[in-house]
Design a binder for these strands. Structure first.
Lengths: 137, 137
DNA sequence: CGGCATCCTTGTAGATACTG
DNA sequence: CAGTATCTACAAGGATGCCG
């Protein structure tokens, strides 16, 4: 760990380091619901039940768990209003809003290139009808 | 589904549509290894065994499956040189290279904000020692 | 060398029922 | 209303061994 080495290996080091962190974030928001929740909250705070309605196929459990994870990472803010029945609102934090930018960038890529991907898949499947891949469609 | 409606609802429609596609892409590259492979191939093509060496903890099985999935989506190009022993090279396609841009954007976000996330987690864990979240550390 | 087959463990997620 | 608790399923992923 000599200082003299740092400029030599810094590029690769940083690259490797960034890869790991990138992988981490991608796994965090790469799950089934995080992005949908972040998108749903982009236009303002929502209550638990409103979120559940906007994301039709999510179960209460998964909504709770995903919100909890997002809250833990400081991406969403949870506000409890102590009335009966209880009212709980969720909103994006500043950090969560800043995350939106790269996420929608990825969304734009997906939208722009969706046809290329679809065609690539069809071409691949035509040649290799039942090849097992890591993620099924 | 009247045409007259399209301009009214187009914004929300497109948003919902983009969400779905974004979610799709994120799940595709949000798996454990895809990003690492894409990053590893960013500087040029690599052989199967070279990839395995650059990504120390990946199993042969997962390397094969992930490469196959990336190949199917047209992100990676597989080249077999029919000599013995066989030589197989993997490289990013143009599509794969274009994907790198938004991915490294996300990587930059992760790198920039890693401390904020870490602190948020610690603060959260301090208050709620053993809350179950969707994704464990 | 590259990769497929098999077996096995773990993680992710859904359904359902129950509580303050 | 906004969650927990429990139980179950299936898919991701790892270990190992064999093959062209």
């Amino acid at each position: 760990m000599k200082a003299a080495n740092s400029d030599v290996s810094s590029s690769l080091q940083q690259t490797a380091e960034k890869c790991a962190i990138t992988k981490d974030v991608l796994r965090r928001i790469g799950d089934k619901w995080s992005v949908l929740i972040i998108m749903a909250l982009s236009e303002g705070s929502l209550r638990f039940s409103e979120l559940a309605r906007q994301i039709p196929d999510i179960s209460q459990r998964m909504l709770t768990l995903t919100l909890r994870a997002l809250e833990r990472d400081g991406l969403v803010v949870r506000t409890v209003t102590p009335i009966v029945p209880a009212r709980v609102d969720y909103a994006l934090s500043a950090l969560g809003q800043s995350l939106q930018e790269p996420v929608v960038a990825l969304g734009r890529w997906a939208f722009t290139h969706q046809d290329e991907v679809k065609m690539a898949r069809e071409a691949f499947d035509a040649l290799r009808p039942d090849t097992e891949t890591a993620i099924e469609t």
